[in-house]
């Protein structure tokens, strides 16, 4: 029994064999599991513990250390706005403000339709093309506040396109 899709389960099966020690698969496994399930649920903790062969406490000890791992569901598109120094100097906070306005949510908020969540994050390594954000794993750089609605619309459209036909 697994929580995961056959594809992810197969990937995780291979992942533990990739390293000299199984445990090295822990951090990637948590991240890949979150990518599919949406967050690190108790069930994810239990399955990961069993796959690696460590205690659930041990999984939690590690999982809670890494800031990309979350323990509550986020939106389908998690908007992460960098406000660290390079972005801040070039208007990162204005971008963040605009997302707050457009989405009507604040830090770690989720829109009622579950489509978007918003997070103010630390440096994401795009300093020379600031200000920048990440939506899930996609980067958007050299932003201006006025570009924000377009980005949101783009993901809305993507969600519609990906939605199963009623």
């Amino acid at each position: 029994m697994t929580l995961f899709s056959p594809r992810l389960a197969a990937r995780l099966d291979a992942l533990v064999e990739k390293y000299p020690l199984r445990r090295s698969a822990l951090v990637p496994m948590l991240l890949y599991a979150q990518d599919e399930i949406g967050y690190i649920s108790d069930a994810v903790v239990a399955e990961v513990a069993q796959r690696i062969g460590i205690t659930e406490l041990d999984v939690r000890n590690v999982a809670t250390y890494y800031s990309m791992l979350r323990f509550k569901p986020a939106g389908k598109y998690n908007v992460q706005v960098c406000t660290n120094i390079s972005c801040m100097l070039r208007g990162g906070y204005e971008i963040y403000e605009r997302f707050k306005e457009e989405l009507g949510i604040g830090h770690k908020g989720v829109t009622p339709d579950g489509l978007f969540s918003l997070e103010e994050v630390e440096c994401i390594g795009v300093c020379c093309w600031a200000p920048a954000i990440q939506v899930n794993y996609d980067f958007h750089d050299e932003l201006k506040p006025d570009l924000v609605p377009g980005i949101i619309d783009g993901y809305r459209g993507k969600a519609v396109a990906e939605a199963p036909h009623a």
Binding site: D42, V44, L57, V59, F71
Partner: peptide, 13 residues
């Protein structure tokens, strides 16, 4: 410091 049982992941057990 967190104990090993009876809690939610990411929250203090």
């Amino acid at each position: 410091i967190a104990p090993n049982g009876g809690g939610q992941a990411g929250q203090s057990n």
